[in-house]
Design a protein around this nucleic acid. Structure first.
Lengths: 195, 195
DNA sequence: CAGCTGACAGATTTCAATATCTGTCAGCTG
DNA sequence: CAGCTGACAGATATTGAAATCTGTCAGCTG
């Protein structure tokens, strides 16, 4: 039965899709399920999203953008570059670890979606390394960092910390010594960046 | 038909198993196939390996040990620590990239085996970080590196270069700018290690 | 007539019957 | 009699028929 009789918007469809994904998982979540949850026919869903893949990608993008937003705040904070760099990396790791630890099934669901939505993920990674590049550039400008090419260095820092944000390593994030591992890598990288 | 009438040894079984894995892939390679390739009954194979898993793990271990051996030679070479560190990381990356690029199906096969054989892989990783630790310790001893805890630093370097040796990233190893990415990360790490 | 419905074709998934495989062991063979 | 065989029970994988899903669209409805 329809929960509301509001007009059907892309936004309402995305919310229903998230709920269906949470309930059924990525393999069993169907467009018919989403339509049923909204009390409409599945044909109506196709009026707003051309394909099932497009619908899933939109959900994935929303999810990725939430993390980007949180990290952007750290980039804008007035702290010195080294502090911002450490905070930013720690926040990224903490966010990922929390999501993976709190609701492993939902995390696994989004991991599947992310693999499908290569496009959206690439854009997200570009966003993140862009944020890192800004912090590093600030560090170079204020004389605390040395980096001939801050964009390239930002990518290097991002790659070097992959173990602490790449979902493929989610299992390792439960190890008791993961925090020590994280700090060892960050310390080494910060040392390498210092002027 | 039996290719030879030599006695059935663990070694011969391992060779036949590698061949069957190469031909059929990890999903379809059976103990019966291995026995057929050797011209014996599958019961005989179970005389040498208690389970199919044990057989697969032995094959995996052999494969991993081949890489370990090549890298050990670099550790023992007389070069200064920074050169050895760079050579070692480059050799590890080159070996992985070559294996993944030359025969992607076989590489995928061993990737599946490695996931199953968690035990053997852990030992392999301990071997590799041990080699790294030795290079770093030498660097500290000769005054070119600074590292309060060379073992921990070795793990940090290994984790930070994961993108260039972890099979999960094999797809990225075909990118045209991967070599540049690799050098950027290694340069950053070496800078972080210098005294 | 803008937006929704539901029937439809082709693609994909599910399910249960069937076949194959793993691991054991009593007995055969050289 | 050490080493191998092959039949067997239970577990796992394959297969193909039936069910469901995706994406379209002609026509209904408010």
């Amino acid at each position: 039965m329809p929960a509301t009789s509001e007009t059907l918007t892309a936004e309402r469809i995305l919310e229903a899709t998230e709920e269906v994904l949470r309930r059924h998982g990525p393999a069993k979540a169907t467009v018919v399920d989403v339509a049923r949850a909204l009390g409409v026919s599945h044909g109506s869903v196709y009026r707003h999203f051309r394909t099932k893949a497009a619908l899933r990608e939109a959900v994935t993008k929303r999810w990725l953008d939430r993390t980007t937003e949180v990290l952007a705040r750290i980039v804008r904070s007035g702290d010195d570059a080294e502090t911002r760099l450490r905070d930013w990396l720690a926040a990224l790791f903490a966010a990922k670890r929390r999501k993976a630890g709190d609701d492993p099934e939902l995390f696994a669901t989004y991991q599947v979606l992310a693999v499908e939505a290569g496009e959206a993920v690439s854009a997200h990674l570009t966003d993140l390394t862009g944020q890192l590049a800004r912090i590093i550039q600030d560090g170079v400008d204020t004389g605390v960092f040395t980096a001939p090419d801050p964009e390239a260095t930002a990518r290097a820092v991002f790659h070097a910390t992959g173990r602490f944000h790449d979902p493929g390593y989610a299992a390792a994030w439960q190890r008791h010594d993961i925090q020590t591992e994280f700090e060892a890598v960050v310390d080494l990288l910060v040392r390498g960046l210092r002027a």
